[in-house]
Design a protein around this nucleic acid. Structure first.
Lengths: 245, 245
DNA sequence: TTTGGCCATTTTGCATTCATTTTTTGTCAT
DNA sequence: ATGACAAAAAATGAATGCAAAATGGCCAAA
């Protein structure tokens, strides 16, 4: 029996308006963006098989552009392609996470070093602004606000490095660990939280003095501590994390 | 066109790396490796249009797997895909090169830091061995040998970092600037060469003492100097550009 | 009840085909 | 002769078709 392919009702938002730099003329590019988001946002359970046909119906396209997008996502490390057995959302082992966090640490460390070479007073002022905003969230115990502002600070440092290649690579790696990164900040160890605030003070201080090498060290250590918190949080997820296995 | 791929019994490629795997079961994977090599080795002039048909004939396959490989190479940054106008070998501007060198510097810097955490005495001894070998090439003014050994030293440091994710990323970026990197070492400024040797002494020294932060700084500066030499060499290539390899 | 093999169905991988878009070419007018 | 315009040719983007492999079900035998 031939199941009629629903070519009319596309359940997922079509191109529509795009905010930012996300726009692709071709269909495969469009699919790539949407599929990447779909995966990063965690709509597919870890390690689950994802039949092409299902994704095709979901996006209302044929298999060719979808398969092209899958190949790219596999190259990015978001999914893995098993020969003749389809695509799976890549299951990140604890070791994978440790490695990813370290690479992120290296990239942010680099970003800090480069930022000190070129950052303007205005940019520093903007980051200071974010810092105080984040401090406010900290005082109010506003986890979500803290997380958001924290992200923006780190992104500001990366932007201040004035290196598009670095920025792109940073974005790629960040995408791979987005969910974990979020929960890492949610580790409700108040002590770690206060520690992170102090580290951010040191970051700001080094940035003001344009002390590249020093900032590099501080950022690396900061990310290393975040990594420890994340791993710790994942190792004992009895708290409230979804079992997922 | 029968695939006739010998069943090596390799069911699943290790999920650790994605770009560095040296063998693929599927045709598109095979093509990806061959095409990447083809591009990296410079068989296609910079910025030249590359008709799909031509590549298809070259590899003896149809367009589908080839196009999949092209998408991946574009995602890696080796080529660029112009909408409805085909693939071009990506032309690297001077700014692109500067950025790439800086990212490489950041990754090696990270590698050095991580290596200090886990490197064994045997590994250090091996690197020392390479170092003296390289010194021999330096004394004999053997550029090619020097380049090769130099590469192996840096790769050994990356390997000692024990981070497959880092290793893969490093390999990707290294591929993008392979030719330039080579010619960078060919800059026949004797002064720079001697300087590089001294820097390598310092690298080895810091590595012996497992001084991670210090090694991180040295490696970054070392790559920065290499970057300067490369850019300088490219800016005035009237000298003797090693165009044809 | 469990285990192993056989066959139907589904899914993947690649080739081929179809529809646009781009590029080239040929003709005509200035 | 040169430039503009139109049609032909070619290339790209996407869809479809087909063979091989994998998945799952079924039944027989231990």
């Amino acid at each position: 029996m031939k199941s009629t392919i629903p070519d009319t009702g596309v359940p997922i938002a079509p191109p529509a308006g795009n905010g930012g730099d996300r726009q692709e003329a071709s269909l495969h590019g469009e699919i790539l963006l949407r599929l990447r988001d779909h995966v990063v946002e965690g709509n597919i359970p870890d390690g689950a098989r994802v039949p092409e046909r299902q994704l095709c119906e979901m996006f209302g396209i044929s298999r060719t552009p979808l398969r092209e997008a899958l190949k790219v996502l596999a190259a990015e490390g978001l999914i893995e392609l098993l020969p003749n057995r389809g695509a799976r959302v890549r299951q990140l082992s604890q070791r994978d996470l440790e490695e990813l966090f370290d690479v992120m640490a290296g990239l942010e460390s680099l970003a800090g070093r480069l930022a000190c070479e070129a950052i303007t007073d205005a940019e520093i002022a903007a980051i200071e602004q974010l810092h105080y905003e984040m401090y406010g969230h900290y005082l109010h115990r506003d986890m979500h606000g803290y997380f958001q502002t924290n992200q923006r600070i780190h992104e500001s440092i990366v932007a201040a490095a004035r290196n598009e290649t670095l920025k792109t690579a940073y974005g790629n790696f960040a995408g791979r660990i987005r969910r974990v990164r979020y929960s890492a900040n949610f580790a409700r160890k108040r002590q770690r939280w206060a520690e992170a605030m102090r580290e951010h003070e040191a970051i700001l201080d080094a940035l003001r003095r344009r002390a590249g090498s020093e900032l590099s060290d501080i950022l690396f250590q900061h990310l290393r501590n975040k990594r420890a918190a994340a791993i710790e949080h994942l190792t004992e997820p009895q708290d409230q994390a979804p079992a997922a296995l």
